Simulated assay, not measured.
Amino acid sequence: MLNQLIVALLSSGALAGLIFLLRRVTKVQVWDERWHACFVTANQGWFWRRVAWVTQPKLMVGWCFLLAVVQWSTRGWLGALGVLAGLGGANVIGIIIKHTLKRPRPVQHLAHDDGYSFPSGHVLGTTVMTVMLWQLYGPAWWLAGSLLLWWGLVAYSRLTLRAHYPSDVVGAVLLALSWLSWLKWLIQLLGWF
């Protein structure tokens, strides 16, 4: 339980620090644009668009409900509730941050990638689902490798499709880790599992 609290505090602090830097230090935007240029390629082909489509936030909610049904059948309603709270809570916090910061997307992003940039909703949902799947079904090496590969493809797709800056991806990961750690700490504190 102490480990969860430590991870929650560290990731929350890092996320708060990143948000502070994005709002107050203009050189961070310059750095972000330079790093972003390293990831952007002329090839925005079907593969990267499919990766982004499968992990779009609306579809990720469907994947989450599917996982919740599996959890309901194997671990009961608390397992299903934990899965739904994991993605649902992260999405709500992500939307609040997006509409508070109002960070514009990178130049030349795809037309259907509307809205604000920070944090990446695709990466947030994928990170939450990856961590939850690992916690529920790990620690097999093949599962870890598959989840890490999938996460990497999603993160890279958001950069190469010009939808997000690198800090948007980092912020999404920090938010996911922070929220899931706080949630797991609370669940353990209440003795639900």
Rank of each mutant, 00 (worst) to 15 (best):
G145D: 03
L189H: 04
W142R: 01
V54I: 13
G121W: 04
G191Q: 01
V92G: 00
H122R: 00
V123R: 04
R34N: 15
S117G: 08
T41I: 09
R23A: 14
F193R: 08
G13A: 13
D168I: 05
L67M: 15
V61E: 09
W142Y: 05
S120C: 07
L22C: 08
W141E: 09
L18H: 03
W192Y: 14
L18T: 07
G145K: 00
L87C: 05
L174A: 13
L177Y: 11
F47C: 10
V131R: 00
W142P: 00
I6V: 13
G191W: 02
L9D: 09
T130M: 14
S117D: 10
S157D: 08
L15S: 07
A80E: 07
A42P: 15
F20T: 13
I19K: 03
L15C: 07
I93H: 01
H112M: 05
L21Y: 13
S11H: 11
L67H: 12
W63I: 03
P139V: 04
A68E: 12
R34H: 11
V123A: 04
G89D: 03
G13F: 12
M1N: 11
A37Y: 03
S73M: 11
L22R: 07
Y137H: 03
P139H: 02
Q44V: 08
I95H: 10
D114L: 11
A37G: 07
V169I: 15
S178Y: 10
W31H: 14
G17N: 12
L175H: 03
A140R: 10
G171W: 06
R158V: 02
G79L: 05
W192A: 14
W48Q: 05
L67I: 12
T127Q: 09
Q56P: 11
R49N: 09
R103P: 02
W151I: 02
H36Q: 15
D32C: 05
L2S: 12
V30S: 10
W53V: 08
I19Q: 06
R75W: 04
H164S: 08
K98W: 02
S178P: 11
Y165F: 10
I96W: 01
R23V: 13
L110S: 06
W150E: 12
S12V: 10
S157L: 05
L183A: 03
W179R: 04
S167D: 13
V128E: 01
V54C: 09
G94L: 01
P104K: 04
I6M: 11
A68P: 15
V107Q: 15
W182I: 03
R23C: 13
S11M: 14
L153T: 08
Q71H: 15
L9P: 09
G121N: 05
S120K: 02
G89C: 04
Y165E: 01
V92H: 01
G115M: 12
Y156K: 02
